[in-house]
C-alpha cells in the first residue's frame, strides 16, 4: 500500500495471502466491467465508474467505518439508522431554527461519534454482544428520527445546496461531486490509520485474537470503543453526504443500509470474523455492488430485485471462500 514498498512488492503482493481476497474482488470488478462494456452500448465509459462514486459516496464512508468494526470481529447494525438520524438532525436544524451548515455539520458528526462511543463502551465494559448493543442503537436512532418528525424535511439552506450541487469537472467531460472527494479522503485517512498507527494495528490484533492482544499488552477496551466511535462518526458523515445527495432529511432514509455496508465489506475480502482485510477491498466492494445495479439496469429485462439475489450469491461465494481459506491455515493448537 505504501508507495515506498510498491516497486519490489509487486511480485510478493500477488502471492501474499493478505492481498489475495482483494485481488479476487478486483478481478471480479474488472470482469464485470469488461463484460458490461462488451454487452451494452455506452457502458464502457469513465463516467460509469465515477457515477459509482457519486451515487455511493455515503455508502463508501459508512462502509469504511463498518470495516473498522468488522476488522475487530464486531458488527454494527446501527449505521443505517444513524445515517437517517444525521440527515434528520441536519435538515431540521437548518430548516427550523435556520442554523448555518458550519455549525450543524460538526454537531451532527459529534452526535454520531458519541452514539458510537457509548455503544462501544457498553460492548466493552458490560461484555454484551455487539449484535445486541448495536441493535438497540439501531432502534434508538430510528426512534429519535421519528420523534424529530415523521415527514421528509427539505433542505434549502443556500450554502448547503450550493455545495451539494457543485460539479467538479475533470478532463474529457467527466465530473465528480465534492462528496466523492470527501469519501475518498475518508478512505485515505482510514487506510493511513489502519496501516501506520498503533490504533490501526491494534484493530487487526484484536480481530486476530482478543485474548492474545490483551496478553501482549494492547489496550483492547480502548481499541474496541475507538472502532465503534469511528463507525458512529462515519455513519454521521455518511448522513451528511446523503443530505447532499437527497437534499432532505427523512426517518426512512438509508433503511437496510447496514446490510449494504456489511455486504460491501465482505465482498471486499474482509473476514467477518475479524483480523484480516483492507480498506481498498471495501472500496472495490462498493464498486461491485454498484456495478451489479448498473448492469441490471442496462440489461432492462432483469428487474431490480435481481440485485439482492446477486448480492446474496456473491456473499455466499465470498463467505465460502473465506471458510475454505481459514480451513487451510495451519492448526493453532493440538
Amino acid at each position: 500500500m505504501s508507495i515506498a514498498t510498491l516497486p519490489k512488492a509487486t511480485a510478493a503482493t500477488l502471492t501474499n495471502p493478505r492481498y489475495v481476497p482483494v485481488l479476487v474482488t478486483f478481478g471480479l470488478f474488472l470482469a464485470m466491467f469488461v463484460a458490461g462494456g462488451l454487452r451494452y452500448e455506452g457502458f464502457f465509459s469513465g463516467q460509469i465508474i465515477l457515477n459509482a462514486f457519486i451515487d455511493n459516496a455515503f455508502l463508501l464512508v459508512v462502509a469504511v467505518g463498518m470495516t473498522f468494526v468488522i476488522l475487530t470481529g464486531g458488527i454494527d447494525l446501527s449505521v443505517g439508522s444513524v445515517v437517517a438520524l444525521s440527515t434528520m438532525i441536519a435538515a431540521s436544524l437548518m430548516a427550523g431554527p435556520g442554523w448555518p451548515p458550519y455549525v450543524v455539520v460538526p454537531l451532527v458528526l459529534l452526535i454520531g461519534a458519541t452514539l458510537g462511543a457509548v455503544m462501544g463502551f457498553i460492548i466493552h465494559v458490560f461484555e454484551i454482544q455487539p449484535f445486541i448493543v448495536t441493535l438497540a442503537g439501531m432502534f434508538l436512532a430510528r426512534g429519535l428520527c421519528y420523534t424529530i418528525g415523521t415527514d421528509s424535511i427539505k433542505i434549502d439552506d443556500p450554502t448547503f445546496t450550493a455545495f451539494a450541487q457543485t460539479q467538479i469537472d475533470l478532463f474529457a467531460g467527466l465530473w465528480i461531486s465534492p462528496s466523492v472527494l470527501i469519501a475518498l479522503a475518508v478512505v485515505a485517512v482510514g487506510a493511513y490509520v489502519l496501516h501506520y498507527t498503533r490504533l490501526g494495528r491494534s484493530v487487526y490484533a484484536v480481530g486476530g485474537s482478543e485474548q492474545s492482544a490483551l496478553l501482549m499488552g494492547l489496550s483492547v477496551g480502548r481499541t474496541k470503543i475507538a472502532v465503534y466511535t469511528i463507525s458512529g462518526f462515519c455513519s454521521a458523515l455518511g448522513g451528511v453526504l446523503l443530505s447532499f445527495y437527497m437534499l432532505s432529511g427523512y426517518g426512512l432514509h438509508a433503511v437496510g443500509m447496514e446490510l449494504d455496508a456489511i455486504a460491501a465489506v465482505v465482498i471486499g475480502g474482509t473476514l467477518l470474523t475479524g483480523g484480516s482485510g483492507l480498506l481498498i477491498g471495501t472500496v472495490l466492494g462498493v464498486l461491485v455492488l454498484h456495478l451489479i445495479q448498473t448492469i441490471i439496469s442496462f440489461e432492462g429485462t432483469l428487474s431490480s430485485w435481481w440485485t439482492k439475489i446477486f448480492i446474496g450469491l456473491l456473499l455466499f461465494v465470498f463467505i465460502l471462500l473465506q471458510r475454505v481459506f481459514s480451513m487451510r491455515r495451519p492448526r493453532r493448537s493440538p
Partner: peptide, 14 residues
C-alpha cells in the same frame, strides 16, 4: 498467545 493474522515483525513489536 500471538496474533497469527499479523506479520512476524508485528508480532514482535506490536
Amino acid at each position: 498467545n500471538l496474533c497469527t493474522n499479523l506479520s512476524v515483525a508485528e508480532n514482535i513489536f506490536i
